[in-house]
């Protein structure tokens, strides 16, 4: 009987301790009058140096009088637990010593007569978290615009155009900016700003003005500069939008082709074109790319 009584006593004691623990657990969000508007800055536990309040200097002076009052009343009342916890997310994505494989699709933006769609990829190795070196390659598909078709109808002219064939380059990248934004204040998305320069080769081909005339190709040295935004989706996946400006000297079909001794001699036409019909070309393009990273994961080397 004694053992039974002892057993029941222990159980009841345990029960009472459990209820006491539950009472100390955070309550459901209390009303403002319960003094639940304390912040880590004014009532919370010791603030770690990680909490960068310098980003909101003079924050107390910015608060409305009502808010200030709320912050001081109800001392000792239960607090909203999330306000006592300092959360400083780490940099979400590390790139150092990782390889980025980035297939992309692009489109030219600045030529009203001919548009090119591009498909290709970037292969970048990150020497540091902000510096990369890589290769870029793309293949182009042309599309003549409606304006091009109207040139003949409206002006009785045939435009002199070149189409792009393919391009490859060595590129260097740098990340000057790193940021994060709140999406509807529900999710935090990390992103960075990228700039790149490169040097490579582009192959172009003339579109003969007269049907049946032979075309020739040009291999031009091309330099480019780029600016892009990259969103970090997973540890191994990013999405990017990039603008690049390609600059090169290109030879267009010689306007006096019919006056050459042999208009079908492409070598002679090319020579005449290079001598008389060569001009600096700027191709501004926009790209969408998906970045796949190898190795697919990374480890932080510094403590939180």
């Amino acid at each position: 009987m004694k053992r039974l009584a002892l057993g029941l006593f222990v159980i009841l004691a345990n029960l009472s301790v459990a209820k006491s623990s539950l009472a100390a657990e955070p309550e459901a969000p209390a009303s403002d009058t319960a003094g639940g508007d304390k912040t880590p800055a004014d009532t919370g536990p010791a603030i770690t140096p990680d909490l960068d309040l310098s980003e909101i200097p003079g924050s107390t002076e910015m608060a409305t009088p009502g808010e200030a009052k709320k912050g001081t009343e109800g001392v000792g009342a239960p607090r909203k637990s999330w306000e006592d916890i300092v959360v400083v997310p780490r940099k979400a994505f590390l790139k150092k010593h990782r390889l980025e494989i980035a297939p992309f699709a692009g489109i030219t933006l600045n030529d009203p007569l001919i548009r090119h769609y591009s498909f290709g990829g970037d292969l970048n190795y990150y020497i540091t978290d902000v510096l990369s070196v890589g290769l870029e390659g793309q293949y182009f598909i042309k599309e003549l615009s409606e304006r091009e078709s109207l040139v003949g109808l409206q002006y009785y002219l045939v435009p002199t155009l070149n189409k792009l064939k393919y391009h490859y380059a060595l590129a260097f990248g740098y990340v000057p900016g790193y940021g994060k934004f709140g999406l509807f204040n529900k999710w935090i998305v990390h992103w960075d700003l990228t700039v790149a320069i490169g040097l490579g080769m582009i192959r172009t081909e003339i579109i003969p003005r007269a049907f049946g005339d032979k075309a020739f190709t040009n291999d031009d040295i091309v330099g480019h500069g780029g600016l892009g935004v990259r969103l970090f989706v997973l540890d191994w996946l990013t999405l990017s939008v990039t603008f690049r400006d390609y600059v090169y000297q290109d030879a267009f079909e010689y306007q006096g082709r019919t006056s050459l001794p042999d208009p079908q001699d492409t070598a002679a036409v090319k020579k005449a074109s290079q001598d008389h019909q060569s001009q600096l070309v700027q191709n501004i393009m926009m790209f969408f790319s998906i970045g796949l990273y190898v190795p697919p994961s990374f480890t932080y080397r510094t403590p939180r």
Binding site: E55, G177, Y178, G179, K180, F181, G182, L183, I188, V189
Partner: peptide, 9 residues
């Protein structure tokens, strides 16, 4: 929908 901060250099 998007607002945040950025560190340049």
């Amino acid at each position: 929908p998007l607002s945040g901060k950025i560190a340049l250099l």
